[in-house]
């Protein structure tokens, strides 16, 4: 995992690309929604999550690319490292990576959607973290699959987005509520859904990862 982070820091390019992508997504949405709707917190929350899904996808593809370059993933599989440990490490790296992208996206969202940096940000943070855990857990597992098939870069969103829908619905709703200044209690159900999604997919990834990275 430390190696993944160092790789990211070293190349730097993907982090930048991620931020640029988040910015572009937000810009496109601002234009697409029109000035009137840009005032609403619903639009802001939606845009934020769109940016997040895109960033997560890009990040997952990138992380796998590093392993694919010289067949390094084989080197890892050959080592005494347990596939589940490998999954945990990859997940942590993806998570940190996504968290950085999220911070960037939130700042941009506040600027573009005329919001304020206030207490609502503190309530938004745990929601975004839950979303990032779920998405990273899913994308790390799926990118190990799509990374080893033809046309895999296209397949990742096709597989990941439908499965991510429940967390996406819950995340958007909870984020909009948080931005509107609602207290935590009012979004209990959404948070529960996100926690359930996270628990389920981290466990699934942990258990199933060995089957997707195993020999051909």
């Amino acid at each position: 995992m430390r190696k993944d982070l160092r790789l990211e820091l070293r190349s730097g390019e993907s982090t930048l690309a991620l931020l640029a992508l988040s910015m572009l997504v937000l810009v496109v949405l601002v234009f697409a929604l029109g000035a009137a709707r840009v005032r609403s917190v619903d639009a802001a929350a939606g845009a934020l999550w769109v940016a997040m899904v895109f960033a997560g996808m890009l990040g997952a593809n990138r992380a796998l690319l590093a392993e694919r370059d010289n067949g390094a993933i084989r080197g890892l599989l050959l080592s005494p490292l347990d596939p589940s440990t490998l999954y945990a490490a990859k997940l942590c790296a993806a998570l940190i990576f996504m968290a950085v992208a999220e911070v960037g996206a939130v700042i941009l969202m506040v600027l573009f959607f005329n919001l304020d940096f206030d207490a609502s940000m503190a309530r938004l943070a745990p929601i975004l973290v839950l979303g990032a855990i779920g998405f990273s857990a899913l994308a790390t597992l799926l990118s190990a699959i799509t990374g080893r098939t033809r046309g895999g870069d296209m397949l990742l969103p096709i597989l990941a987005v439908p499965i991510f829908v429940p967390a996406l619905i819950a995340g958007v709703k909870a984020s909009a509520a948080a931005l509107a200044g609602a207290p935590f209690e009012s979004m209990g159900d959404w948070l529960k859904i996100m926690i359930a999604f996270d628990v389920l997919f981290v466990t699934a990834g942990y258990l199933l990862f060995e089957h997707v990275v195993g020999g051909e």
């Binding site: 597992l141 699959i145 098939t149 499965i163 967390a167 999604f197 089957h211």
Partner: peptide, 26 residues
């Protein structure tokens, strides 16, 4: 290998169904 991929996606998708149901119902 691809058969295992299919199996994993089949399992993950089925696991997702209950959460999907709850979330869309809400």
């Amino acid at each position: 290998q691809v058969a295992r991929f299919g199996a994993v996606i089949g399992i993950v998708a089925a696991m997702d169904v209950p959460i999907v149901i709850v979330s869309v119902r809400l």
